[in-house]
């Protein structure tokens, strides 16, 4: 009987070793360890054994069972691992095939840059305000210290829709409208983006384009504050290494007035084609609010001072994306909108 048990153990192990899948293993388990299995059959014959032999053979049978169960478990694990590995290898795909196309959609570059500029200034405490695109002569010119026959009207060829009504030529009327509504409340800090129109259409001019206007009015707003705010803007917009340069200029509604150049975004100031070799790019006009404009809008110009600035959104956008043709921005060619 002892021999028989050992033979079963030996035989079962050989079968387990030979088994190649989990199903086979289960069959072997049933055959040797099941209720009707070989081991059970042997144990049934224990009745014929002597009283001395019975515990010894019983012990032996149990250890054979344990041994086989352990062996089976090990084989099960082995085969499970093997099968998993086979499945994983079978399921291999070419991960370099393109993904399922997702309908992308993108914001127009002008909208994106406008958002960026607004974010910089709202972070500095400016509120975003808007104004009408069709304006009166008063808000577009008169209230900005540009009377009829003023030579500065030449700089802005105007579309008219009525004798005193026009398509605004700049976003500056929003300055006046905002001040009128707020006076004499301070501090006033606004940024005013919007469409503007001028009678000009060529490679570098579009009859419709966008400006962003800024205005701050308070006690003791200085020209130095204007320089500081625009320095922060230039650095946030074009990178912290960007330098700014203020050159005296002329706008009827600011005094002193300045043009602001930034170090060229392409060459860093060494001089290249984009900056015509000067190392500088003109990006905006600005100045202290002209006392007359403050007075017209209801502020005491002795007590309050302010600064204002205005920039072309197209110019900034073209610099940011390296766009060299203004017309691309309004042609809406999908190859352009999708790319950028």
């Amino acid at each position: 009987m002892e021999d028989k048990l050992k033979a079963i153990a030996r035989e079962a192990k050989i079968c387990l070793d030979e088994a190649s899948d989990l199903k086979k293993l289960n069959e072997i388990r049933v055959k040797y360890l099941g209720k009707k299995g070989e081991l059970t059959k042997v144990l049934r014959g224990m009745g014929s054994l002597s009283a001395e032999e019975r515990p010894r053979i019983g012990q032996l049978a149990n250890s054979v069972r344990e041994e086989l169960e352990e062996y089976l478990e090990r084989r099960t694990d082995e085969l499970k691992n093997k099968e998993l590995e086979e499945r994983l290898s079978r399921e291999k795909i070419d991960v370099t095939l393109p993904g399922k196309p997702c309908m992308l959609g993108k914001m127009h570059p002008l909208t994106r840059i406008q958002g960026e500029i607004e974010d910089i200034f709202t972070g500095l405490g400016f509120n975003v305000v808007e104004g009408p695109e069709i304006e009166t002569d008063y808000y577009n010119f008169e209230a900005l210290n540009i009377p009829k026959d003023h030579p500065a009207r030449d700089m802005q060829d105007t579309f008219f829709t009525g004798s005193e009504v026009l398509l605004r030529t700049h976003t500056s009327p929003i300055q006046v409208r905002t001040m009128e509504a707020a006076a004499p409340r301070v501090p006033l800090k606004i940024i005013a983006p919007g469409r503007v129109y001028r009678k000009d259409d060529d490679a570098t001019h579009s009859p419709m384009f966008h400006q962003i206007e800024g205005l701050a009015v308070d006690y003791r707003i200085t020209f130095a504050d204007l320089k500081g705010v625009l320095k922060v803007f230039a650095e946030s917009m074009f990178g912290s290494e960007t330098r700014t340069r203020f050159r005296p200029s002329y706008f009827p509604f600011t005094e002193p007035s300045a043009e602001v150049d930034i170090s060229c975004v392409m060459c860093g100031g060494k001089g290249c084609r984009v900056c015509s070799g000067t190392g500088w790019l003109e990006v905006l006009g600005c100045g202290s609010v002209h006392p007359r404009v403050l007075e017209i809008s209801g502020y005491d110009s002795e007590q309050y001072t302010g600064f204002a600035f205005g920039m072309g959104l197209e110019r900034i956008t073209m610099l940011k994306y390296g766009i060299d043709d203004l017309r691309l921005l309004f042609e809406n060619d999908l190859r352009f909108l999708e790319q950028i």
């Binding site: 709202t122 405490g125 501090p187």
Partner: peptide, 20 residues
């Protein structure tokens, strides 16, 4: 010389700033 004027930030009462 504009370049000799310092760069400062407005010193008055602070404003929240933002969009409508």
């Amino acid at each position: 010389g504009y370049d000799r004027i310092p760069q400062t930030l407005p010193s008055g009462e602070s404003t929240e700033g933002g969009r409508t």
